[in-house]
Simulated scan of single mutants.
Amino acid sequence: MSEEDRTPEKRNNGLIVAMCLFFVVGMTGMSFAAVPLYRIFCQVTGYNGTISRTEQFSNTILDKKIKVTFDANTAPGLDWAFKADQPSVSPRIGETVQVSFTATNTSDEPVTGQAIFNVTPLQAGAYFNKVECFCFTETELQPGETLDMPVVFFVDPAIIEAEETKDIRVLTLSYTFFEHERPVAARVSEESGSNI
């Protein structure tokens, strides 16, 4: 085989290598984007019991009530006591309600936490609207500090119109607090006892 016959094969191999590298770089980028994109998708659609965030109140309040129960948890490794101040409320559908949760840092050092949340049954998540919530931001508690954290929400009246949600009478709003990751430099500094 002459040198001229091998040139197209070399070009084809180079193209295949370039395409593989492009694919690997693209998939790596997509893996980093997957979590934020999934979170946005869930917040927009209410998929997987994710609650909608809104800055306005409901204009319609129905005579029909719905029971909302509360579930408060902490992830392993987070030394906080976390609870709802009341086990449930029964607002009218569309009525704006404020409830409170309490968190206490039981450790001997400052800890920053972040809460994740969902609503069950999952199909009702799209109709649960939060106006204000501690879960929108990180929460830092000093050793022994207790913080009262409000949640302002309403259940969209459209919940009684949708076929999959019209018979729902009880919703559960569930929170789990996780320790927010500290920067690597801070962790290394704490472990080595040095100041960086």
Rank of each mutant, 00 (worst) to 15 (best):
F23T: 10
C20N: 04
L62A: 09
A103V: 14
T104E: 07
V35G: 02
T96L: 10
A84T: 04
G113A: 05
D167M: 03
V152K: 15
D85E: 11
G144S: 07
H180M: 04
E163T: 10
G125P: 12
P76H: 06
D156P: 15
F23I: 04
A72M: 06
F101W: 12
A103W: 01
K10G: 02
E161L: 07
F101D: 01
Y175W: 14
E164C: 04
V44S: 08
R39K: 10
K64Y: 01
T54A: 06
I168G: 00
Q98Y: 03
I93W: 01
M19D: 01
F177M: 15
N195G: 10
V24Q: 00
A126S: 10
E140L: 11
N59R: 08
Q123K: 07
A126L: 03
G26N: 13
T28A: 13
N13M: 03
T120V: 05
D108K: 14
M30G: 05
V24R: 00
N195Q: 13
I196D: 14
K130N: 09
D5W: 13
S107L: 05
E132V: 02
T74G: 01
I196H: 12
C20F: 09
A34S: 11
S194N: 14
F70W: 12
R53T: 04
M30N: 05
S90C: 03
N13A: 12
S90D: 14
A84N: 07
F178S: 13
F32R: 11
P91K: 05
S192C: 02
N118Q: 11
L21G: 09
E164P: 03
V17R: 05
G77V: 00
I159A: 03
P91T: 02
D167R: 07
A162M: 02
T54I: 02
A126V: 05
I93T: 10
D79G: 07
A186H: 02
E132Y: 11
G46A: 11
A158H: 09
K65H: 13
A158F: 06
I66M: 08
S174E: 12
S194M: 08
R92F: 03
N118E: 10
K67A: 01
L147V: 09
A162N: 04
E190C: 01
C20W: 02
F128H: 06
S192Q: 11
S31T: 13
S31M: 05
I66E: 05
V111M: 13
C133Y: 15
A185G: 09
G94E: 00
V44L: 09
L78N: 04
M19N: 03
N48M: 09
E9V: 15
N48L: 11
S107Y: 00
R39F: 00
M149E: 02
